[in-house]
Computed example of a mutant assay.
Amino acid sequence: MNTSAAYRVLGAISFSHFLNDTMQSLLIASYPLFKSGFDLSFAQIGLITLSFQFTASLLQPLVGAYTDRHPKPFSLAVGMGFTLIGLLLLSQATTFPMLLLAAALVGSGSSIFHPEASRVARMASGGQHGLAQSIFQVGGNAGQAFGPLLAIWIVLPHGQKSLALFSLIALLGMIVLSGVGVWYRRQHRKPKAAASSDGHDLPRGQVLQTLAVLMALMFSKFFYLASISSYLIFYMMAHYHVATSVAQYHLFYFLFAVAAGTLLGGPIGDRIGRKRVIWISILGIAPFTLALPYVGLAASAVLSVIIGFMLASAFPAIVVYAQELMPGRTGTVSGLFFGLGFGLGGIGAAVLGGLADHWGIVAVYKLCSFLPLIGLLAVFLPDLHRARPTVSAPVSA
């Protein structure tokens, strides 16, 4: 069977994820520009993050549940269209409410993109679900790392209106995703294979308890990520007295490490089990996060790379573990967990921004260093005892 088509689809969906998350991280990396240009407080910066992540967190589970029942192959391109409009409005915003509306449109685009894109990755996986999820997610993490560089090179030197240039990225994404939509529609027109009989035999109560543990681990992961992604620039400037451009590069190092960790987390989970990866990646970073607020500039760069790499490896494992926990609900699970990640990140940014206004950004980093200890809850995750499926070739075109 020809396997190249499915890998091309995985590459296309990962590339689209790269474009989508580049635009999101570009928004975050432009915060210093908005803070000075609109005279914003840290709390208002947090509200911008909340506005685009809150729309994503509310809509993603709904989108996923709906498309589980009614697949919409071209909804991916439509979602990217929302992002395009949001970027154009962001470049022209003259008031804080306009900034919030533009950010919400970017979030709405992501809420449509993520559940269906995750479904496409699973459809094209050929049974290697962790690997496919990592390939999909690493595109997003690479985009998050690339956004700060674009802010340094283009947005900060040329100002707010230069954000309009990046609507071309969204347009490119719409073109790529239209092609993915054609493949997606073709797969749904094919005769469906018989459903797999392998699965777990956990009672409903334990399934709900396991979901609660996964959500607590997500809280730990994404609140800590919010402290880094939204405020690392301001922390570096306040604590180490470095220039904005230097702090932007440190954010790039962290986000690049996140991308590398995401790429490896899924396939490692395929080999050694999701539970082990989740346990090691979340709880294992605690010594490094506890040390981070007390080291020098060079050591902080090293520690942030280690933290980003280890923490990111958990998310592909969590998503695939949850998909196996709730078989047949790929869109619902993907929407729930991607949406939860966005929502927790947005709430975390808003809460931590308010705390930073009152206590200072350095104190907030010291407080957040304890969050990975929540990873101890991973001991309550059951082994699902799924029979390993025979890995077949990915779906052909």
Rank of each mutant, 00 (worst) to 15 (best):
S4N: 01
Y7V: 05
R8P: 00
G11P: 01
A12M: 09
F15W: 08
L33A: 09
F34A: 07
F34S: 05
K35P: 00
S41N: 07
Q44S: 05
L50R: 01
S51A: 14
F54L: 15
S57Q: 12
S57M: 13
P61M: 01
Y66E: 12
K72G: 05
L76G: 02
A77I: 01
V78K: 05
V78R: 03
I85D: 13
L88N: 09
A93D: 15
T94C: 07
T95D: 14
P97L: 04
L99C: 10
L100N: 08
S110A: 13
S111M: 08
I112N: 09
P115Y: 10
R119L: 13
V120I: 11
V120P: 02
A121M: 09
A121T: 11
Q128H: 11
Q133T: 15
V138D: 01
G140V: 09
A142W: 13
Q144T: 15
W153C: 09
V155C: 05
L156A: 14
G159S: 12
S162M: 10
L172E: 06
G173W: 05
M174H: 04
W183T: 13
R185G: 05
H188D: 09
P191M: 06
P191E: 11
D201M: 07
R204N: 03
L211F: 03
V213H: 03
A216F: 11
F223T: 15
S229R: 13
S229N: 14
S230P: 05
S230H: 06
L232R: 01
F234Q: 14
F234S: 14
V246H: 14
Q248H: 13
H250Q: 11
Y253C: 00
Y253V: 08
A257R: 06
A257V: 10
V258Q: 11
A260M: 15
G261Q: 09
L264N: 02
I268A: 12
I268F: 06
G269C: 02
G273R: 03
R274N: 10
R274E: 11
R276P: 00
S281Y: 14
L283Q: 01
G284P: 02
A286I: 01
F288T: 05
L290W: 08
A291C: 07
S300N: 13
A301Q: 14
L303Q: 06
L303P: 00
V305G: 07
F309V: 09
A312F: 15
A312E: 12
I318G: 04
V319R: 05
E324T: 09
L325E: 04
L325S: 05
P327F: 11
R329S: 11
G335I: 02
F337G: 07
L340I: 06
G341C: 08
G345A: 08
G348Q: 11
A350D: 08
A350K: 13
G354D: 10
D357G: 03
I361N: 01
I361E: 06
V364P: 03
Y365V: 07
L371Q: 07
P372T: 09
P382S: 06
L384N: 00
H385K: 10
P389H: 03
P394W: 00
P394E: 01
P394V: 02
